[in-house]
Write a protein that binds this DNA or RNA. Structure first.
Lengths: 152, 152
DNA sequence: GGCCAATACTTGCAAACGCAAGTACACGGC
DNA sequence: GCCGTGTACTTGCGTTTGCAAGTATTGGCC
């Protein structure tokens, strides 16, 4: 077992942790609300946006997805009425996505179950202090990245 | 802007950070070696395994992938000779994956470029102390998960 | 020794995604 | 006021992935 670079090891931990968490959260969210993780994140971003509305490009950037993925994710969500389209009177290119009542409700409920999952993750063997430290360091790591969810 | 749960915020940072890093590393590794991140991780696991050999199930567990994904990832890698199959004399069900010389070389080279990327990530505004702390906390978070790469 | 549950792997199928090309529109320079 | 460049979005196509079903094999139990 060779000595490994600390930066490398950290990155490996990050990659592993994420793929595991992604699976756990997806299973729970799917089971309870029929939502994928990305769908919930999309709703959460809309919920936080002023007027519950956002352009598709901005959603893509915040979700770290391509524009085409956003387009395709939205189609079924419009169909079931979580979300609706709106035009921009000044620029006919843009299509706003606006959150409807049922979508807003889903966003809140989904956030609650995601929060519960997150808390369960840290419930054992983690002090509030340690969690805060991890939070701060991760926040720093992603600080210069575009489109994060408001933190407070 | 409601007060947000610290555990939730931490998890959101984790998800975002990962999806961003995944893309960066994928671009670099693909460009330099023609490897995907998962392919490199697979080679790295083999490189660390005694005899450079591992069962497919164990690879799947370590990579946090399904068995079918591992099966399909390996096909082209066998074709180009990074890896070869071996049978277990005691159990005809298992198919070992064994690393060949070119695969071992690729694993080492890929690890070097991934290490460089990882170091670049932390090069600015990160002290060795902070990196060590982040590393320890992430390590704890994934500690009870199966199949991590040996830490050195 | 025959049967049944569990294990290792493969394959068919569908979902989620990115890239590149296509369409529609905006905006600035001339 | 037209034209070229850039932006917002959509669509076609290929890749990666998981799930579920299928095959082969092992091992325990009677």
């Amino acid at each position: 077992m060779g000595m490994k670079n600390p930066a490398l090891v950290t990155v490996l931990h990050l990659l592993r942790t994420q793929s595991h968490l992604q699976q756990r959260f997806a299973a729970e969210l799917g089971g309870v609300h029929g939502l994928s993780v990305n769908e919930l994140l999309l709703l959460m971003h809309l919920d936080q946006a002023p007027g519950g509305r956002l352009r598709r490009v901005d959603l893509a950037q915040r979700l770290d997805l391509s524009q085409s993925s956003v387009t395709r994710m939205l189609a079924p969500m419009e169909k079931v009425g979580w979300v609706e389209r709106a035009e921009d009177p000044r620029d006919a290119r843009v299509g706003y996505v606006v959150l409807r009542k049922s979508g807003r409700r889903l966003a809140r409920e989904g956030t609650r179950t995601l929060t519960a999952q997150a808390e369960a993750l840290f419930a054992e063997r983690w002090s509030a202090q340690e969690l805060a430290t991890l939070n701060a360091l991760l926040g720093r790591l992603s600080a210069h990245l575009p489109g994060q969810l408001a933190a407070g």
